[in-house]
Design a protein around this nucleic acid. Structure first.
Length: 129
DNA sequence: TCGATGACCTCTA
DNA sequence: ATAGAGGCCATCG
């Protein structure tokens, strides 16, 4: 937990800078863009890490999307559960706490989850947005 | 600068 | 359907 907190603090530092004033260089925070994309996922729909990365203008940065979600502060109320792996597959180990939590939240939004996967019909490419 | 790591993706057997 | 290998890219020690 300590490591997680430390990494989070390191990442929140530049974010706090932005919070306090106008950002100088501009772009820098890819995390912010990714978070915004995730937030834009409609309720009852899910998307993949790759799709999120593409929509954020970062093709091939699927892993970065995952990293962004990992370090995302809870204050953002980010719908991280709407992001799944390719083919609608939940990336968390089966039986893990996060896995069950994600499945539970998805079902609560009307997205059927079976065998650690979500219905393909519920998936959106985000390219049309 | 380099090697290891990870909420990934895709192809092949 | 399952398992392994290679590729991708940012972050960390």
């Amino acid at each position: 937990m300590a490591a997680r907190k430390k990494a989070l603090a390191r990442l929140l530092r530049p974010l706090a800078r932005e919070n306090g004033g106008p950002r100088a260089g501009g772009e820098s925070d890819a995390l912010e863009v990714i978070w915004q994309v995730v937030c834009s996922i409609p309720r009852g729909r899910v998307s993949t890490y790759g799709a999120v990365a593409r929509a954020a203008g970062l093709p091939g940065h699927a892993r970065q999307a995952g990293f962004a979600l990992r370090v995302a502060p809870e204050d953002l109320n980010l719908p991280w559960h709407r992001v799944v792996g390719a083919g609608g597959r939940i990336v968390f180990p089966n039986g893990s706490r996060e896995h069950k939590e994600q499945a539970r939240r998805l079902r609560a939004e009307g997205v059927p989850v079976k065998a650690g996967r979500v219905a393909a019909a519920a998936m959106t490419e985000l390219d049309e947005l």
